[in-house]
Amino acid sequence: MRRLTTDWNSALTALSADVTPDTQRPLDLYGEALTASDLAVIPEADLPAGLPSWMRSDEPWAARKGADSEEKRATIVVRIPEDERPF
């Protein structure tokens, strides 16, 4: 996660010189890990039509599972939140 946030921060810093936001604000970089405040609901228009609302929610619905980092990298478990299950 630290490598991901470091790489992302480098890209944000590089892009910030060329991107003009609608509202000026200081560049807010990530720490060594994501926190709850870094997560947000993805706007519906940013995803394919018909995608279930739970997939863009801020409720956790996918997790990497495994005994070691290689197995975790290869295994993602998806669970539909109970209150979103149609059955």
Rank of each mutant, 00 (worst) to 15 (best):
M1S: 05
R2C: 11
R2I: 10
R3H: 07
R3V: 09
T5A: 05
D7V: 09
D7N: 11
W8S: 13
W8M: 14
W8C: 13
W8N: 12
N9D: 13
S10G: 14
L12Q: 12
L12H: 09
T13L: 14
A14Y: 14
A14C: 12
L15K: 08
L15A: 10
S16M: 08
D18Q: 13
D18H: 14
D18S: 12
D18K: 13
D18G: 09
V19P: 03
T20H: 06
T20I: 08
D22G: 12
T23Y: 11
Q24V: 14
Q24W: 12
Q24M: 13
R25K: 15
P26Y: 07
P26A: 13
P26N: 11
L27K: 08
D28L: 15
D28M: 14
D28E: 15
D28N: 15
L29A: 06
Y30T: 06
G31V: 03
E32L: 10
E32G: 11
A33W: 07
L34E: 03
L34I: 07
L34R: 04
L34P: 01
T35K: 03
T35G: 07
A36L: 11
A36W: 06
D38S: 05
V41E: 15
I42S: 08
I42W: 04
P43C: 07
A45G: 11
L47A: 15
L47H: 11
L47P: 10
P48Y: 08
A49F: 15
A49G: 12
G50K: 08
L51S: 09
L51T: 14
P52L: 09
S53N: 12
W54S: 04
W54L: 02
M55W: 00
R56N: 03
R56G: 03
S57L: 04
S57T: 06
D58C: 11
D58H: 13
E59H: 06
E59V: 09
E59I: 07
E59R: 08
P60G: 00
P60N: 00
W61Q: 01
A62Q: 04
A62C: 02
A63N: 02
R64H: 05
R64Y: 01
K65C: 00
K65P: 02
G66P: 00
G66S: 00
G66Y: 00
A67Q: 06
A67W: 03
E70W: 00
E71K: 04
E71Y: 01
K72Y: 00
R73K: 13
R73H: 07
A74H: 08
A74W: 04
T75P: 02
T75F: 04
I76T: 08
I76K: 01
I76Y: 00
I76M: 03
V77F: 00
V77G: 03
P81Q: 04
P81W: 01
E82T: 07
E82N: 10
D83A: 11
D83F: 07
E84W: 00
R85M: 05
R85L: 03
F87E: 15
F87V: 13
F87T: 14
